[in-house]
Computed example of a mutant assay.
Amino acid sequence: ITQEMGKLINDSRAEVEKCAGVCDFYADNGPQFLADEMIESDAGKSYVGYFPLGTVLAVMPWNFPLWQVFRFAAPALVAGNTGVLKHASNVPQCALLIEDVFKEAGFPENVFRSLMIKASQVKAVIEDPRVHAVTLTGSEPAGRQVAATAGANLKKSVLELGGSDAFIVLEDADLDLTIQGAVTSRFLNTGQSCIAAKRFIVVDAIAEDFITRFKAAVEALKAGDPMDETTTLAPMAREDLRDELHVQVADTLAAGAEATTGCEPIAGVGAFYKASILDRVEPGMRAYHEELFGPVAIVIRARDEEDALSIANDSPFGLGGSVWTQDSARGEALARQVESGCTFVNGMVKSDARLPFGGIKNSGYGRELSQHGIREFTNAKTVWIK
């Protein structure tokens, strides 16, 4: 992982462990999740059975090159499907490793295969009658293309696309806990995560204190070799991605935002970008409306809780979000109103095999993980016996 896309070595090890965990979870719970559901009707016996659809194509990204695949493959294969993987072009060794893992685990030959193909060939694979469904984790444009092809061929699809998660800080938040969550959620994987906190929506009453503490914590991050266990900020995956991020930042600054810290590339070898905070981001600026896929936090100031909720929902994305307050009941009430696939109170957004994961709006549709995820690629079939 680290050699191909630059993730911190400790985070790469954690990703491997998480993949093992999701495999254990579905090995333990898959039979229960797929058990027939008896339903009383006018029949002598009636139930819903969950049967595999067939072969599922997975189009997967580079940012979590093992986890993104295993959170699809573990439930899909346990449900009786077979899988083919089109992985990102910059992580070919990860793609081949995953195929080997399933072979070594004892799965029959060809139950899971990695296709070493170009992105331009994905359409033909979806159209192939031997493929019955498709799942994609990636960008919104890629998701639209895959969904269009799947729809034209009447094939089931699940999409997990971009996100611009709101991190709402209310005036009664525990700032020690909140700052720790803010730094981890924004800068994990160098900010290259769909569920990273990207929009820090802070009420005016606590904004200055939050920004002062946030700035100090962000500036303490240490950029360097991702193979060095003391490094806390890795390079971005590619230089072109860093350059695209900097254009978004520069355009936002030109529109009137303020650079609290960073907001520029780090000179030298590697696609390094300074851990950054953009303050006073407002509607009309690129950073307000677009996803920033890198180590840049944007701060949007809100008058009060009601204004913070309005800002949080003023986004084309709806993947995740979080609320930070010492009043759990207040946080829960607000979390229920955030337009997203998941909202956490006093905790950073993360995927958990026990809970469904996915988004709404331009962040996609369908769910992965939990009982909901394993049933996505099944035929929920009614069986009726007189």
Rank of each mutant, 00 (worst) to 15 (best):
F210Y: 15
D225H: 10
N346A: 02
N313K: 11
K86R: 10
D225R: 00
T325L: 11
L253W: 05
R375H: 12
E239V: 14
C19G: 06
G106N: 12
E37A: 05
T149D: 01
I1L: 13
R186S: 04
W324D: 08
E15S: 02
A148N: 13
Q3D: 07
A275I: 04
S120G: 15
K386C: 06
L136N: 04
S363K: 07
G284K: 01
G44N: 09
M236G: 07
A271N: 05
T261P: 06
M285R: 02
S46V: 09
G224S: 11
A147W: 01
L221T: 04
A250W: 09
A205G: 15
S114L: 10
N346G: 05
N63I: 09
D172P: 05
W324M: 08
E15V: 06
A79Y: 07
H289T: 14
E305C: 10
P283I: 06
A14Y: 01
R113K: 15
F200G: 12
A119L: 12
R130C: 11
H87P: 08
A76V: 10
T232K: 08
D314N: 14
A329N: 15
E109R: 15
R280V: 00
D174E: 11
K118F: 11
A27W: 13
L77Y: 04
T184Q: 13
T252D: 00
R286L: 07
T184W: 12
A312M: 04
V16S: 11
V84N: 01
E376N: 12
E140L: 13
A43S: 13
T178S: 09
G320S: 14
D225F: 08
H289L: 09
K222Q: 07
M5V: 11
F25V: 01
L154T: 03
F293D: 12
D165E: 01
L334Q: 05
G373S: 01
A205S: 15
V131K: 00
C23I: 15
G331H: 02
A150P: 04
Q371V: 11
K103S: 12
A150Q: 02
L188G: 00
Y47N: 10
A166G: 07
V59P: 00
A14Q: 12
V131F: 06
N346S: 10
V131S: 05
G106F: 09
A329M: 05
S310R: 13
L57S: 07
L85F: 01
A27S: 06
H246W: 14
